[in-house]
């Protein structure tokens, strides 16, 4: 038995593009996440200040991190899919 995927995979012409985009988005999210952890560790009282519409920073930032992950996932998928389709078309030509 050899290594390799359980299902046969077609040629992927977009690996480089997707890797670059993934790394950029990862670092953007990491920065936002690190900001949350930093405030939590060193300035936890800051988390109690009202940030938006009567809601405190802890809630807004925490929920924001969850929602941001979903939005960034959708953005990543949109650009990856678009690039894959474009490259596949070019390869066919």
């Amino acid at each position: 038995m050899h290594h390799g995927p359980a299902a046969e995979l077609g040629k992927d012409y977009s690996i480089e593009y997707k890797t670059r985009l993934g790394v950029i988005l990862f670092f953007i999210y990491l920065l936002v996440y690190a900001g949350f952890v930093f405030i939590g560790v060193f300035y936890p009282d800051l988390m109690g200040i009202t940030a938006l519409a009567g809601l405190n920073l802890a809630f807004v930032y925490g929920m924001g991190l969850i929602v941001l992950a979903i939005i960034m996932g959708l953005v990543y998928n949109y650009f990856c899919t678009r690039h894959e389709d474009k490259m596949n078309k070019e390869a066919e030509l």
Binding site: G22, V23, F26, L65, A69, Y76
Partner: peptide, 11 residues
């Protein structure tokens, strides 16, 4: 737990 999925997806 949710933030961890960002690493899984992007990397």
């Amino acid at each position: 737990f949710l933030a961890g999925w960002v690493v899984a997806l992007f990397i």
